[in-house]
Design a protein around this nucleic acid. Structure first.
Lengths: 193, 193
DNA sequence: TCCCTTTCTTAACTTAAGTGAACGATTATC
DNA sequence: GATAATCGTTCACTTAAGTTAAGAAAGGGA
């Protein structure tokens, strides 16, 4: 399992055996069953998540309805606002599938940044990359219709459509489950003709 | 003008006189007239922008229509993907008003990170903060109707509605200018009753 | 100041998403 | 294996956004 993480890191920096050991000694690998709630609304948490295997999902509970806003799968990571602003979480984080994650907290980061400054460089580069990627995703979302969003998702993350329930995909696309169902029927009809 | 920047930086790190001088010596302050195009579609650019005064805007040209996806005002910054991926820009960056910006490039950053490591810490913290903020904005966008988005904008960035043309706000809210106009009339009507 | 361009509003019509409800189908539970 | 709960689809209806077009208002330049 560690290998997955080290392979990922090696795209950004080169680790010595010492550094790999320091990382392992942090003891950050965790396994979870499908459906496990990692964070609930109202909780304060300082944990950052990184998915080695499986899929986690962010959702809000609004007017009694789940609104899913994000999925994170293999080699994707997520840091909730709590780490920055110390306020109780507004959303839930749960496992869509059985998953293996690394779970980190700010004090661990502090420690490792002290010992190995290149980790901080990696984290800066990583979050700058993520920031850019997310900006582009947001732009695409704003400039597309629900149907276009669905078609793009089909292109860019076809796996998600397989592994995630429709009603979760719907709010991820910014619409209601019934609309997604109708929209899919419409798209299928068009392709038939 | 420098003071604005130093005040902003002081929220994250404390600068010595030496460090302030090093920053000034980079000679990154620039003034632009309203309407100036800072970056056009197809151009390759490595510049990062930080707004000291004024307002810049990101827009795409899709089917002959401008689609505005972001505004950056005082003490907000923006780094285009080009810095990360070296591909030609997919969007335009232009000045909504007369503006004063700092314009940086990666080699300058490299240099300053070398000399003063705490700048890198600041940049990491900053981009982690921005990432979180943007995630929340994206979540809010996905879980809101156009009308709710407009009302929230009215609350959170009332200045924008004053300083920016409606047709630019419309795509920022994910709708057409005509729909924004109608939506506003609807909201006004509700408040009257 | 006048003219031209750009921006905003209104309206009628079309299209698609929201809503509420019903019905299978699939999954989980006992 | 029967029963209940969850999930996906469909339908009829409502509401709001997209589209096309026209005209009013505002802004900028000569």
């Amino acid at each position: 399992m560690e290998k997955l993480l080290f392979d990922f890191i090696s795209k950004y920096i080169t680790l010595t055996a010492d550094e790999e050991k320091a990382l392992i000694d942090l003891n950050i690998f965790r396994s979870f069953k499908k459906g496990t709630l990692l964070l609930a609304e109202g909780q304060k948490s300082n944990n950052g998540y990184f998915v080695l295997k499986g899929c986690i999902r962010i959702y809000y509970m609004i007017d009694g309805e789940e609104k899913t806003t994000a999925f994170y799968t293999e080699m994707e990571g997520f840091t909730p606002p709590g780490v920055v602003d110390k306020k109780p979480s507004k959303f839930y984080v749960s496992c869509v599938e059985d998953s293996i994650l690394t779970i980190s907290d700010p004090s661990m980061e502090e420690e490792i940044f002290q010992k190995f400054p290149k980790f901080e460089t990696m984290c800066r580069v990583l979050s700058e990359e993520l920031l850019v990627k997310q900006q582009l995703d947001f732009d695409t979302f704003k400039t597309s219709s629900p149907e276009q969003r669905y078609l793009k998702l089909l292109e860019n993350r076809p796996d998600l459509i397989q592994r995630v329930p429709q009603y979760q995909l719907a709010s991820f696309l910014g619409i209601k489950p019934q609309s997604l169902s109708r929209l899919r029927a419409r798209v299928l009809e068009k392709n038939k003709r």
